[in-house]
Amino acid sequence: MKTIKLKKESVQLVKDVLKDIKASPDLGIYKCVQCGMCTSVCPGARQTEYDPRDMIRRVLEDDETVIDDDNIWNCFSCYTCNSVCPSGNNASEINQILRQMSIDKGEGMKKIVSFAAYGDSFMELGVGSIPNNFFDVMVKDVGPGYMDLKINIEDIRADLGLGSYILPENAIDEVESILDNSGFKDRLEKIKRCK
């Protein structure tokens, strides 16, 4: 049986969440009444064991194991939970804060390794673009037209009167310099080492 002890226990997790730089100033986690409206509209909850309402409960009850729970990685960040929440709370924002906590602990690194190629594209092209290693999945999802689009993108853009989407060399250098000096590059390398 769980006991809420008389001796004041620290409830640190919710405070850490609210202190996080990503937390909105009016984040209403304390106002949650566990009505489950977030879960009722969550596509992640429909397909997996992810339950945003329960995630919020665990944060409020100082259950730190929620950070290590694989289920928090099943949120699509679609923000529907946020758009329906009647209590001014934002489950997707809290999800992202918990994920960052997991990444900071090290465990979460493994979950984002596969996205590292996105970071590379920023370094190489100066913009975020779908990395090559996702092409197979995209073809499966979107259909063979996806590769046609990829290959002929410059011609299609020219037909539409749009310029090249490849940034000029000096712009790419500048972006890279910013990413390097801001620590992005080091962080990316660190993530890649978790493979």
């Binding site: 409206m37 009722s40 309402r53």
Partner: peptide
């Protein structure tokens, strides 16, 4: 116990979507 987030309709039947928060089940 649960607050529905949406009401859909399929083949003339309404689907009231909520989480049964006591049994912890999307419903």
């Amino acid at each position: 116990r649960g607050r529905p987030g949406e009401i859909a309709e399929k083949d003339g039947i309404f689907l009231v979507r909520l989480e049964d928060t006591l049994s912890r089940e999307p419903l």
